[in-house]
Design a protein around this nucleic acid. Structure first.
Lengths: 211, 211
DNA sequence: AGCTTGAAATTTGTATACAAAATAAATTAA
DNA sequence: TTAATTTATTTTGTATACAAATTTCAAGCT
């Protein structure tokens, strides 16, 4: 378990609920669990805290933040502002090669039989990133990546959005169509709708059946 | 030099150019300089890295990121999206008490004689935060705080925007007027103009005379 | 009972020492 | 001379040990 991989592993385990939300994490227990000393554990915790994937629990310890519908709504609202911005900034630099690569990702999602819900979610996000990366906007990409990681935890293995997956997937194809046809405004409008739907689905679900 | 204060001190010293941009930081030298062992230094570095106030320099070491006009422009564009959002979300919760406190800050900026440029900058940001905090949106506030910290470093002790200070200050008073009069859309429009002007001032300055 | 107060125990924070990796330097070959 | 490869040196990464702080829990008080 090397440094970078401890951070990755811990992040994944947070997503997957190995460390329950709202309960203070114990550095010693984490050390034992991951078979390393407390020093690399502390490094990883510090980083995760700065990314808001962990929050303070009392004066000194950290915990996985409890999920609230209000925060989920907030995170989606922020994405709703920033992702269209990323698409607009990317547009002038979008090449057929990039659109082609995005297309490949959609094909993989369709045809690859043995994909877990988590895998599908990861590919979906890769699709979005593929387009946004053309924006050449490192800070914006960093923020979007961070925001995505946070909302990911709300999806709880994507059971929630499975129904929505088909609609969502259709919209991805449409998005590429519009971009190929140089219809930026229409593409942005579609993207906004796309994000808003996902956000509403999640928040309404959370309000019915909290965390 | 306790843990939290080391982080604060290091951050301030980065702003003030104690550690030159583009040069790899040395943990040992930082330890010597701040009179602590490398462990708390590492903790602080890790946090600053996650906040993008430090970036990788090679495979293992960190550095203060060089400033580019393109990145400054990007950061202001992001603020241009998120700050109006914060103001809109804050608006329904804005009380006369809050607006009064914001007013007090403006008075302090006007009347307090012995304020450094840095102090004035800090009070300016406090003014904005005072309004945004009513939004009760922790994630949005966290992002805005982080973004502000990043652009702060571009201002190089605010010499740049000294000319602009008067106009900016006027606009702050106008903003409060509009909010008191429940003119949200007009207030948002003014805020956007406010941010855009500051952004253009900075980026044009950086393009003339890089970093 | 409920609320303080004050030890005891746990947990986090830091220093030192050593291992691993990365960078710099030097040697050799083309 | 330049490029590549090896060796030396520096620098970062991690473990262990100890200090400081926080949390827990129990006793005493109102």
């Amino acid at each position: 378990m090397t440094k970078a991989s401890l951070y990755q592993q811990l992040k994944q385990d947070i997503r997957q609920g190995v460390w329950p939300a709202g309960v203070a994490l114990n550095q010693q227990k984490l050390s034992d669990y991951y078979q390393v000393s407390r020093i690399p554990v502390r490094d990883a915790l510090q980083q995760l805290k700065a990314e808001a994937l962990l929050v303070m629990a009392g004066k000194a310890s950290l915990m996985v933040p409890p999920l609230t519908a209000a925060e989920a709504e907030e995170l989606y609202q922020i994405r709703l502002q920033l992702e269209p911005m990323a698409l607009r900034r990317a547009f002038p630099q979008l090449t057929f090669s990039i659109i082609g690569q995005a297309e490949d990702l959609l094909h993989r999602i369709e045809h690859d039989q043995n994909l877990s819900a988590a895998d599908r979610g990861a590919l979906n996000w890769q699709f979005h990133l593929m387009l946004y990366q053309a924006s050449q906007s490192p800070h914006l990409l960093r923020l979007l990546h961070s925001l995505h990681q946070q909302v990911e935890r709300y999806l709880g293995f994507q059971e929630i959005s499975l129904n929505y997956a088909d609609t969502s997937h259709q919209e991805h194809w449409q998005l590429l169509e519009l971009l190929r046809a140089q219809q930026l405004d229409a593409a942005v409008a579609l993207l906004q709708q796309h994000i808003q739907q996902a956000g509403e689905l999640l928040t309404s679900h959370l309000r019915q059946q909290p965390a």
